[in-house]
């Protein structure tokens, strides 16, 4: 592995990780962070899993190539930017930090996330944002520039999910089914439209109010900054809000 200090004053390190196993890669990352690196650029990343999983603090990771599954799983603070696509399990049970994907992401993006923000420029796979949580100030956010596959937002218990539909054609609906099935907390903002049959039974739809727009604007602005888009242009689209109709979707299921 080639670790080259590019800018000693700002502790920027570039690393070519060709052929490196994930275990060795993460060992090196822990060491570099312990040595005070503030920005680490990983070159030629090719399928290494769990990148950034055990890093705390404010370090900035920049990934060129294709990171493997579980990118930033359980992550607690760093920011990760990927110039490429992310695979499955990106941001799984993430606690704090930011993940920015300049491309697509696979299945279960942000599963059970507890905090932090994930921005995906294009589309995501199945079961995105399942069981995202939230409590007090901890509010995970997933913004997807394109659209998602089935079961997006299933069992959501908190947090904010935004689907911008920018990869869809003019007037084309989102295609996911079972959106928000079992949802009992949090909120989904969806640009464009969906048919009722695509929504889980537990999901209601509503117009956005002022408070919703404030949350939406903040997150769309961040999205636009990350990917060089025009936030105002995106926000001109028509949005709907999806919310849990009941706190206790399965409260009537049982006999005592």
């Amino acid at each position: 592995m080639l670790a080259m200090v590019v800018d000693g004053a700002n502790q920027v390190v570039k690393v070519d990780v060709t052929g490196l196993s994930y275990r060795k890669l993460n060992e090196q990352l822990r060491q570099l962070v312990a040595d005070g690196a503030s920005r680490i650029e990983l070159l030629n990343v090719c399928g290494q899993r769990y990148i950034g999983t055990d890093l705390g603090g404010p370090v900035e990771l920049v990934i060129y190539g294709t990171p493997g599954n579980a990118l930033g799983a359980f992550m607690d603070g760093p920011s990760i930017t990927v110039y490429g696509n992310a695979q499955d399990g990106c941001g799984n049970t993430m606690n704090e930090g930011e993940i920015i994907i300049h491309g697509h992401a696979g299945d279960i993006v942000g599963l059970s996330a507890r905090g932090g923000r994930i921005f995906v420029r294009d589309d995501v796979g199945y079961r995105a944002a399942i069981h995202m949580k939230g409590y007090g100030d901890k509010k995970p956010v997933l913004v997807v520039g394109g659209t998602a596959q089935d079961f997006v937002g299933e069992y959501m218990a908190g947090g904010v999910l935004v689907l911008l539909g920018l990869t869809l054609g003019e007037g084309e609906n989102h295609r996911a089914s079972f959106i928000g099935t079992g949802m009992h907390g949090g909120v989904i903002y969806l640009r464009g439209s969906v048919e009722d049959h695509q929504l889980g039974e537990e999901v209601g739809r509503a117009e956005l109010d002022e408070a919703d727009y404030r949350v939406l604007e903040e997150n769309v602005s961040r999205f636009a900054r990350h990917f060089g888009r025009d936030a105002d242009e995106i926000l001109k689209g028509s949005f709907i809000k999806l919310f849990p109709r009941w706190l206790r979707p399965y409260g009537q299921l049982y006999a005592y």
Binding site: L111, H131, Y135, Y155, A157, G158, H184, G185, L247, R248
Partner: peptide
Amino acid sequence: RMIPEGTDALSPAPQHDIYSIEDLAQ
């Protein structure tokens, strides 16, 4: 648990990141 007060705490039947032995390994 980081869920709203008074809601049912729902544990889905499968872990949605484990659909196989390979996923368990992950």
